[in-house]
Design a protein around this nucleic acid. Sequence first.
DNA 1: CGGAAGATTGAAGAAACTCAATTTGTGTGG
DNA 2: CCACACAAATTGAGTTTCTTCAATCTTCCG
Lengths: 244, 244
Amino acid sequence: MLATNFETTLKQRCSACSLREICLPLGLDQRELSRLDDLIKKRRTIPAGQHLFRAGDPFQGLAAVRSGFFKIYEISESGYEQITGFPMGGELIGLDAISTGAHLGNALALEDSEVCEIPFARLEVLLSELPRLQHQFHKLLSGAIVLDHSLLMVLGTMTAEHKLAAFLLNLADRLEMRGYSPLVIHLPMSREEIGNYLGLKLETVSRMFSKLRQEGLIEAEGRKVLIRKRDALKVLAAGARRDR
Amino acid sequence: MLATNFETTLKQRCSACSLREICLPLGLDQRELSRLDDLIKKRRTIPAGQHLFRAGDPFQGLAAVRSGFFKIYEISESGYEQITGFPMGGELIGLDAISTGAHLGNALALEDSEVCEIPFARLEVLLSELPRLQHQFHKLLSGAIVLDHSLLMVLGTMTAEHKLAAFLLNLADRLEMRGYSPLVIHLPMSREEIGNYLGLKLETVSRMFSKLRQEGLIEAEGRKVLIRKRDALKVLAAGARRDR
DNA sequence: CGGAAGATTGAAGAAACTCAATTTGTGTGG
DNA sequence: CCACACAAATTGAGTTTCTTCAATCTTCCG
């Protein structure tokens, strides 16, 4: 009991976090890590189905996903939704709010999730003092742009089947990077959410799941997906078809 | 002759740049501006049709567009192109390269253009010393993410006609922000490039131009576009149709 | 002026959507 | 623990949008 408690507090610290090789702490030494630990005090639990923030909320700070899964979506003037990402462990949430001081996106927990809250004003001070942390932060911001561009590529050039293949592979890769099996996926999102993300209707997503199943590339029943032929999926995901 | 020369060197300095309210210098005082001026020495001219950088080039520094127009495009593994943006005056280019140290995108000048080169390593040092500059830089990075998200919204939720309306309005807004007329647009890109950007074929783009023309919202002959009913375009651009 | 590239328009085809019915899965209360 | 109700997923049939292929027209350079 005492041990569990100890472990919990340990895990609160960036220096002992299993995600430190993906997240802000990457590349820092002990001294720098402890400075960062001082900053990131609060851990917050978000139950499945609840929002971490909503569009319009004032920007207090960033959040780093500790565990669980989120969906980030934006709502246009006229009420249309677009999911822009499904962040998981080690990824930063709320970067878009830096530019305006208010959130433009909504962050909904798809599973019971935990985040580390990062007060942004204090982070910027620390960035000035720790060049390596500053650089890592810039890398993460830049990485968010790269990620968005790869989604643009998917939306702009691929057919439905290719889109779904790319989506599943992306999940597999990110799971693998975090030490999970890349072949057994439990989807935290519905067909409708996948469709929204990929610019497809849920029925089309469902049909493409069936197609990939028939072709023997995956097994899928509901939200459980087993990747059978990862290489073949890669060929699909690489080979967009529309050449605009 | 001497006068022109003087003016040119003046214009080289951020402190006297007409774009300083959009670009990095925003919010800086005289002292800070002169520090930034020290950093940004080089101006470079890129003739229309030439690349500022290509995918794979090592990342030396960012570039701020001084004048002209670029297209940024990425090429997927399998050779498919996707244009991710058409940056113009005051916008930063090359942000995606921070994360990996090499450019993922290609930057091609659509017109004769000028850029200010910003050595990134030195910029980061300066950011540490000038908190306001640091914050402005983060705002620009965050703004790039916001921009990408709005394009995701367009690609994911809109029909062809709405996409083109949104595209033209976006151009109009950005031109207006820089002091140009928002109603008279000379497009620096081809129908094919617009289509690639919007996830459409060039023929579809052409048809939508004709449609908007027939509906009296614009006048268009080739690359010259006159916006007749900006409000009506806004209604179109706001009102996406597919609700995925 | 001539040629090539870009833009427009038409007709036919394909991909994805809409509408609708059915099946499966999930959570809740008896 | 089962039964029920409700939400999610699958599948089918018909329609729409966008693409593809092709012909024509325009523009812009050399």
